[in-house]
Design a protein around this nucleic acid. Sequence first.
DNA 1: CGCATGGTTTGATCCTAGTCGAAGCATCTT
DNA 2: AAGATGCTTCGACTAGGATCAAACCATGCG
Lengths: 226, 226
Amino acid sequence: MREGPDIARIASLVGDPARANMLSALMDGGALTASELALEAGVGLPTASSHLAKLGDGGLLSQSSQGRHRYFRLAGPQVAAMLEAIMGVAETAGPKRARPGPRDASMREARVCYDHLAGEHAVAMLDGFFTRGILDQGKDGVVMGKAGPSFFAAAGIDLSTLPGKRRPVCRACLDWSVRRSHLAGSLGAAILDRILEQKWARRDAQSRAIRFTPPGRRAFERTFLA
Amino acid sequence: MREGPDIARIASLVGDPARANMLSALMDGGALTASELALEAGVGLPTASSHLAKLGDGGLLSQSSQGRHRYFRLAGPQVAAMLEAIMGVAETAGPKRARPGPRDASMREARVCYDHLAGEHAVAMLDGFFTRGILDQGKDGVVMGKAGPSFFAAAGIDLSTLPGKRRPVCRACLDWSVRRSHLAGSLGAAILDRILEQKWARRDAQSRAIRFTPPGRRAFERTFLA
DNA sequence: CGCATGGTTTGATCCTAGTCGAAGCATCTT
DNA sequence: AAGATGCTTCGACTAGGATCAAACCATGCG
């Protein structure tokens, strides 16, 4: 008999297919209503409501009521990181899975992870930041490097607005498709915002995939990849 | 209805208390027999056998038969990393938990994570490695730095024996208690080996905690922490 | 107001999955 | 061989939990 964190309790929350679908649907960091999540999970409204209550009690979801709508979102970046970690082993440890099709390929290339960019592009970007001294691996994880401030200013990102919230500015997040780190934290979120704001890419409505336009991809590479 | 990795399948494997206990017991990277795991999980032998079969099919455990014993261990470092991630949210998202007692305090300070050192000491060590140029954050994650070879030679670790296996030499692993990275990979494993071999510390028999002897702690700090 | 819409609660149903006793294999010991 | 030990399989029992229909609140709109 062991002690330690009650891992079974929260794993069993994720272990139900309906709840897992809901959580996956929220992995893009957005907020959805109970009925949307019911649809997403392929389950009736009462069932969904019950599931959502459990996820709320379990601390995986936060809820906010607006009028007669009730919005649910992931409780925080840690929850998203955990889900990515589970996806990682599901991908490799899972039984013979159909090889990732074209849709999955675009997910591998670029997708939203909670509120920041993930996938091959994001991993390459973080690598470049390190080698160019834009970010550094410091005492408290990832930290701003010497070349950082001027770089981000040139890229149109205002660093002064980032601190102040409770979340760290820089954070590393393990990528389940590439299995290397990409940049999370408020800086990661700001970069994704910038990409979308410039209309270099748009979010797929159905999945978490990010689709770059051809000129957008070039602009992204010119700006963020050396 | 979503696609993507079958997250519910593997989360539900972890979601059963008996299986969660077994997995926790294996988090130290060691191998245990079916009966030991049954005891650890507080469950009968037939039940344990059934659980172990499921964990094996699910790809979370690897098994090896030696004589009439059957040994089980975690399938790989990714599985351990996932479990640590789940522990992380269980720790924060969990409901009012009893504040960590003395035993948990020693776990936070130093413990085994699969096959390498985790906890505050390990996080401080990796930080020091980065600032002293012993390791660097390179294109492919953590990589040997300029000062590395001479440093590890002085510390009694033979780098030439490390590569060759399928696992990376250096890897970052997110620490659930401190929520910052520590060093995994074969180099991380070699450092832990060295610490135990020098008898600077011993492993707690019951938990994953690592207990330094007073002179051992000084030697560790002198050797690995600046 | 009255009605529609979004969400929760209740109650009943059903089924999966965890549990163990007993019997069955396999392997080691004597 | 005969016995002991470690583990798995089989069979039966049970409990927990997922599900939905129907009734019940709450909010917004005309």
